[in-house]
Design a protein around this nucleic acid. Sequence first.
DNA 1: GTGAAAGCGCTAACAG
DNA 2: CTGTTAGCGCTTTCAC
Lengths: 358, 358
Amino acid sequence: MASIHDVAQLAGVSVATVSRVLNSSESVTEATRAKVRSAMLRLGYTPNPSARTLRNNRTGLLALITPDIINPYFAAVASGVQDMCRKSKYQLILCSTGGDESIEISYLDLLSNKQVDGIIIAPPGTHSNPKSDAKIQNLLNRNYPLVMIGRRFESETVGCDIVTTNTAVGTREAMRHILDGGHSRIAYLGGPNPSVAKTRLATFRSSLSANGLIIDENLIFQTNLTLEDGYKICRKLLSVANRPTAIFAVNDMVAIGAMIALQESGIAIPAEMIVVGFDDIPLAAMFRPSLSTVVQPKYDLGHIAAERLIARIEGLVDRFETISLPTHLVIRESSMSQQTSKMPEADNQLSRKNTTVL
Amino acid sequence: MASIHDVAQLAGVSVATVSRVLNSSESVTEATRAKVRSAMLRLGYTPNPSARTLRNNRTGLLALITPDIINPYFAAVASGVQDMCRKSKYQLILCSTGGDESIEISYLDLLSNKQVDGIIIAPPGTHSNPKSDAKIQNLLNRNYPLVMIGRRFESETVGCDIVTTNTAVGTREAMRHILDGGHSRIAYLGGPNPSVAKTRLATFRSSLSANGLIIDENLIFQTNLTLEDGYKICRKLLSVANRPTAIFAVNDMVAIGAMIALQESGIAIPAEMIVVGFDDIPLAAMFRPSLSTVVQPKYDLGHIAAERLIARIEGLVDRFETISLPTHLVIRESSMSQQTSKMPEADNQLSRKNTTVL
DNA sequence: GTGAAAGCGCTAACAG
DNA sequence: CTGTTAGCGCTTTCAC
């Protein structure tokens, strides 16, 4: 591997000069610049990033830590981050923790320690991760550039940029829609513990209360946020004595898993059970029946988070901000109110042909 | 940020000693070791990775470059890589190119330049990427530690470790199964260009020929490897004059997208159209009808690739090897031969209840 | 406009 | 068993 010295020697200049053309400093003659350029080319020279980092204290790298990159929701977020990185000449490193706190911690350690210039962290998929929360708090105290997607801490006054969505609005809209459909026994398929998507659950509860409905704790389920686990939890749900007539799921993956379980049990959607999800992943519009869901601006979430992070790294912002993006409900087949009377079998199969893809 | 000097000073020893306890060299008294340890703790010291890398020429990082991390196939591969990395104390960096060659190239440049100790590269999702192929060839010539998952080059004698699957066997088995079902008009939904999954297409053709069937080029389609694109291409397929009765898709995402299009058009699976996929992603077994598919040992692919890469980095292997893992067909609802006579409507819906989840 | 030299944090001879 | 020191490749004063 050729070093800056080799280039300098071949070009017949000093290393300082080479460094100058490398950093496109003005004060170099066009002639010397050309000499150096050609020497670089001839040697196939590329600067050593570690040396640069050691010297400059910056890497040009950003990291995105997500619990589960396979979830289309996070993929969309990542895509937004990616685009902003490219625009600003940063490279993105993706870190998927699989919901494992120890992996999350090891990433935080690794990355924050001069490996990347800043970190975007999305909420954990599994639990509240007290240890890694402490780690994050610690980074923030050291003024490390970090932006969170979605709220992670209770405290209002966390010293950190947050980009989040107004899930309460979307959730309320969804609950309104479900209640307007005349449903009173509504199941909530939530995250693996109550702290995940806390606002959604809280809004679920308050919407029920506001409508004078009692909250049946037996209809509040906990599940991992995958299609498979949504499927499983829904099978469990179906064994409940007084089966609900509506399902509100914490995300689309769980909702679609649930719909598969329903279809397998021959339960017509939406005739016998309506389903509403959260996120609006691409599959939501394609699945049959298509899934009603609360739209989140996933791409924007990532894009704005990256923009904010880069601004912070480059010292363009000083104050912390919490940016909240809007959400809204989109109604599709899975919760459409039926004009036809209930015809248990094959009902939704027949109606399917008359509906178009969104 | 505390440096090794600060620790040395606080502990009252030299930097060499601190470095020794850092690298767990034997020749340090338990007493001094303790002193140093506590100094580190007090200062919250963590070694600067750039300095280490600059000195040692190794980062302890591995990169996995995939075209599309959101595809469950690659996620499973990544998981295998991840586990092996953890076992061997390497950290994994995930790079998703989104099938964009320029992104792939910039990752190759970035990573190979002392940022990571080695690279695992999965095939591109889109095209044959001549430029990045050249880049890879260049890295290999420089003896850079790199292992490929799946064949990427024509040449047999590529100087590189390859971990791949014997797709010809699985494909032949799948075609045998389809042909045994009495189908003669079989569509192939392939990658975005013929070079993607070349063997599958070649085996598709040869299986037809071997059975005396003529190959209808109108039934060979090209599509991106996503669910959405599988859906779209299937709609196009359905507009063909003499509709086929079987679909063989290059991967499960495309196959499931196609099934959604079929269901939407009221075409019964498998009564009117059978579908066979490739990969065996989790959704394949869960979707209704469940998808017949060629199983690939995805996790093992990643695991073995990482093992091989690490061995090479650590100088434990010298020769290049091509490791080929087995594939096999698993038959599910989507291609089950029907005992009942053809009953276009709702036929597969009824049979559904009698089948169990795999 | 260009060069000499110090130093970023760390490791590995080499000396003692 | 421990300390001194050179140097990994780069950028950046400070001279000239």
